[in-house]
Simulated assay, not measured.
Amino acid sequence: MPGLMLLDTPSLYYRAFYGVPESVTAPDGMPVNAVRGLIDMIAMLVRQHSPGELAACMDADWRPAFRVAAIPTYKAHRVAPDGGEETPDTLAPQVPVIERVLDAAGIARLGVPGYEADDVMGTLASRAEGGVDIVTGDRDMFQLVDDGGPIRVLYTAKGVKNLQLVDEAAVSARYGVPGRSYADFATLRGDPSDGLPGVPGVGDKTAASLITRFGSLEALIRAVDEGGDLTAGQRARLSAARDYLRVAPAVVRVARDVPVPEHLDLALPGKPRDPETLAALAERYGLNGPLSRLSEALSWAPGT
């Protein structure tokens, strides 16, 4: 499905970091496993899916203030003593290298202050006029799936070599709700990995049943207020979680109105934007092999 491919770049470089041994180093001994792994992932994705456009979306803010204001526990367990994100010591120095490589190669790299990569992807997907593939290991992106776009997720849970294609049918089959209802379902169920408590006593099956029966979280809350068809236990649990349910949707839902520039050149680069810098990075960090594979995938002319 040629079109726009959106990369959840942090998700991918974390996967590369844990999937490629730290013994993969630059000539000076610095680990570059995440850098090399990400470059190879991008080459593979381009080669196998032939997108017309590509954007590497970044976390300009991994824990946005508007989400923390709504739910203070949001990603709180991942806050380092200095207030930043807790990141493995050998990964943190690789992120600037990744950014420099992407920029020198000419692959669009997008992050917006105050927002996560998820929000950038949500905005770009909503704007797109053709097909969109979102490459991520984050289930929250399932809320963007839309067969009408078409917008689909290439889910990396089993690795980039074994991507799971997630469309509306796949979301419905796995969770019992349509993709457009996934955010409401996830709000009820919660997500401990993001510090979202959910409604105590409401798991996947109950969340799916409630959203399917009432159609939306808003309609479900109205049913709680107006004496709708709920068991006494369900009503008690939902009533007790009213404060959480009031603010959680703004945290769980991916923003689709991020101030990303309107006119972006996301076309695959026909040649490196800065070949001299790219060559220097290849030499400095021992990236000749991965960059050669990326060059081949992008069909750069020899010597460019």
Results as ranks from 00 to 15, higher is better:
75 K>V: 01
51 P>C: 04
180 R>P: 02
151 I>E: 00
224 V>N: 10
227 G>N: 00
11 S>M: 10
297 A>W: 03
262 E>I: 07
113 P>I: 01
2 P>T: 06
269 P>C: 04
190 G>S: 09
275 P>M: 00
258 V>G: 00
36 R>P: 00
6 L>M: 05
261 P>H: 06
86 E>D: 14
101 V>W: 13
125 A>N: 10
149 G>S: 06
207 A>G: 02
84 G>M: 08
33 N>T: 04
84 G>T: 11
184 D>F: 14
267 A>K: 08
189 R>I: 02
99 E>Y: 15
192 P>H: 08
242 R>S: 15
264 L>M: 06
172 S>M: 13
110 L>H: 07
192 P>S: 15
45 L>Q: 06
286 G>T: 04
27 P>F: 03
120 V>R: 03
272 P>S: 01
91 L>D: 03
116 E>P: 05
256 R>M: 07
295 S>K: 13
163 L>S: 04
67 R>W: 07
21 P>Y: 00
304 T>R: 15
229 D>C: 04
94 Q>G: 00
158 K>Q: 08
70 A>V: 11
268 L>F: 09
107 I>P: 08
209 S>N: 08
51 P>F: 13
88 P>F: 04
180 R>H: 12
297 A>K: 11
151 I>C: 06
47 R>T: 04
152 R>C: 09
194 D>W: 09
154 L>C: 03
299 S>V: 12
123 T>K: 03
173 A>Y: 09
171 V>Y: 01
98 I>E: 14
251 V>W: 02
295 S>M: 11
150 P>G: 10
259 P>W: 08
163 L>C: 14
184 D>R: 07
120 V>D: 02
177 V>F: 12
38 L>H: 01
121 M>Q: 01
166 V>K: 08
85 E>C: 13
